[in-house]
Design a protein around this nucleic acid. Structure first.
Lengths: 247, 247
DNA sequence: CGCGCTGTTGAAACTTGTCAAAGTTTGTGG
DNA sequence: CCACAAACTTTGACAAGTTTCAACAGCGCG
């Protein structure tokens, strides 16, 4: 964890989406080279967020959307009474901050779970360039829509799955996302604590811990602290949706 | 319930956002009259959806977004194993179908809970007009963003509230939305069954029924079948968030 | 090296789900 | 317009799953 990423001096190194290895994942796939050049100017600057630091906080005004280049972050919705709930975990290629467009204020905290680097994309600029490049515009809409779709999945999970299903679904989701980014899909580091997993899944940390132990006893996974290996992915898949949902 | 709305012949009556009483709620507030005229052509046609009928089904290709003029609908996400979960209840002024932009296929069923009337807005046309009218573009983004924000709220509810809090939050949300649309905020008809409420809130229908009875015994509400009256709105508000959340 | 944070595990308590039965409303067809 | 069937609602008793409380172990950081 916590790979130091201070190699990049954001003032000196010109940010360039056209040469960014993430450009297929991130906001701008399938553009002509001319369009890519225009997009390059979108990314205002890069920003390094050290582990534990906030990328943004709930309540502050929206300045930009943030595309994650490296690292791992969580977003937390805040209760009035001070408690918080993890709304999502975000990694390379994900776009953050879209919840703030509606009110112009961020609704959640964004906290780095390891040292991370993000590209700042001023919303105004994204919108004005969108008006010139239809495919960029449509892709932006698709990304927002996918966020809605993701949320629907979580609502399904929280509303109708028991703890084992939730955790299995969570691990498979992480696995799939790591795999899609070229990392191992069956062996990875959990960047978050049991409590954060529990908060995300609507469970207590003890339940998360117990269920992980249970999975290990069944030979589905091998877990030691934050290091996780999926040893029987089909078994996990069977667990999700198959078994008795609560609704 | 079930007010017959077949008065309108969608082929004859020209749809017109500029004269629509919903235009402040719906997609297009604060436009110049010239811009309104352009927007008028956006709305392809109106469509009547009778109670129990589908506005769209999961899996079908996205044609249009739908702005609700009158009526009441639910959207249901589908499990692979056939079970479904209500993802939202939608009323006058709400926009539906945004979850489908990402994959170009609807992710959920949309079912009318009473006879309803919607405006069809072809996405292509909305996007192309958005490119010409920046304020329309931004407003569309705000609407999508608000859907994300709404989902965050539901995740919070499902992940950290107990049944009483969930139901209180649900009733207050309905109240607030009816109030914002000029209807009574303290007395209204529940368009959905206990089972649908339960599905939305991650509870069983028996729990919903019991909790409503409990609220009534406490003098917070008065409920008879689908007719609901909030008699102590502060009491409901206290219940939400104050009392022991589970996270 | 020890202190705090994190994780594990156990037992009891509580919330909600499950099953069942009966009452009520709604819708349909005669 | 009535009668009957189907769908919806309410309520009770019991079971199951998850949380709560508590104690302890491990790891990492200062």
């Amino acid at each position: 964890m916590a790979i130091p990423l201070r190699i990049i001096d954001p003032d000196k190194l010109k940010t360039a989406c056209s040469t960014c290895s993430l450009h297929e994942l991130c906001l701008f796939p399938g553009l002509s080279t001319a369009e890519m050049k225009a997009v390059d100017h979108l990314v205002d600057r890069r920003r390094v967020v050290k582990r534990g630091d906030y990328l943004f906080r709930a309540g502050v005004n929206l300045h930009s959307l943030y595309a994650i280049r490296t690292g791992f972050l969580k977003s937390c919705v805040l209760h009035e009474d001070g408690r918080e709930q993890v709304a999502g975990f975000h990694m390379m290629g994900d776009l953050m901050g879209m919840d703030a467009i509606g009110t112009n204020q961020h609704l959640c905290d964004a906290v780095a779970l390891e040292d991370s680097e993000v590209c700042e994309i001023p919303l105004k600029d994204l919108e004005s360039l969108s008006r010139e490049i239809p495919s960029l515009q449509h892709h932006f809409h698709r990304i927002m829509s996918r966020e809605i779709a993701r949320d629907y999945g979580i609502m399904l999970l929280l509303g109708s799955m028991r703890s084992e299903e939730r955790l299995a679904a969570f691990l498979l989701n992480l696995s799939q996302r790591f795999g899609a980014r070229g990392y191992s899909a069956h062996e990875f580091h959990l960047r978050m604590t049991r409590e954060e997993i529990g908060s995300y899944l609507g469970l207590k940390l003890e339940t998360v811990s117990r269920t992980l132990s249970h999975f290990q006893a069944q030979g589905l996974i091998s877990v030691q602290n934050k290091h996780l290996r999926i040893t029987n992915i089909e078994g996990l898949q069977e667990l999700v949706g198959q078994h008795g949902c609560r609704t």
